[in-house]
Amino acid sequence: MKTDTIRAPVGATSRARRLLSRVISWIAEREEKRLSRLALAELTDEELADIGVTPAQARREAAQPFWR
């Protein structure tokens, strides 16, 4: 007994994999930014001064949405 199978066009699978890879990379980059901003928000004024950032600059950066 023969069954018919539906196959994706040639190249469609590799395009889908590349797209999925780019989406996963974008999500990972956004998560890294989010975590960095959370850490920045927790630094003391002295720690911020050590890295050359003012408290106002740190607050502005920490307030950015994750997609920026």
Rank of each mutant, 00 (worst) to 15 (best):
T3Y: 14
D4P: 08
R7E: 15
R7A: 15
A8W: 15
A8Q: 15
P9A: 15
V10H: 12
G11M: 12
S14D: 15
R15D: 09
A16G: 12
R17D: 10
R18D: 13
R18C: 08
L19V: 06
L20M: 01
L20C: 00
L20S: 05
I24W: 09
I24E: 13
S25C: 13
I27S: 10
I27L: 11
I27H: 12
A28E: 15
A28Q: 14
E32A: 08
E32T: 06
R34G: 03
R34T: 02
L35R: 11
R37Y: 07
A39M: 13
A39G: 13
A41C: 08
A41H: 10
A41E: 11
L43R: 08
L43M: 14
L43N: 07
L43G: 06
E47L: 03
D50R: 10
D50K: 08
I51T: 07
G52V: 12
V53I: 14
V53Y: 00
T54W: 13
T54S: 15
T54Q: 09
A58M: 00
R59N: 05
E61Q: 08
E61L: 13
A62F: 03
A62C: 05
A63D: 07
A63T: 03
P65D: 00
P65G: 00
F66I: 02
F66E: 04
W67L: 05
W67C: 03
W67G: 00
R68M: 05
R68A: 07
R68H: 06
